[in-house]
Amino acid sequence: MSNADLLPGIARIRARFVGMLGDRLSELESLVASGNGIVPEPAALNDAKAILHKIAGSAGTLGLQDLGEAARTCENDIICYLDTGAPGLPKIFNDLGDFAELAEDLLEEEQPEDAELAQAVHA
């Protein structure tokens, strides 16, 4: 039995989560683009990590396991990068791209207006 079956109010919370996802995605985008545009500031990466941590923590409970796992991968990438310098930025950007794609698909499916906005920001 899924969490959605067990928890009657989950649809409302999921809608709120998706409602916040567009803003979180835009914030991630600007944090990663901070600094000289090539290497993000460590402080900005820390903030990005905190956003990803929140998404990873709640998405799975709301039935969005893939999105949650993609966020967790990005979070772990950043933790490792800030601690050791590995994996390199290309891997982080690549994983963030995968995460953003999943997030945009979800927005497009559930909130088409927010998806357009997010895509406009990326463009």
Binding site: I10, I13, K54, S58
Partner: peptide
Amino acid sequence: DDDPIILELVAELLVTF
């Protein structure tokens, strides 16, 4: 929790329990 979604989830879950 600093995530409002988690707080909402926890509140909903605990009331359900």
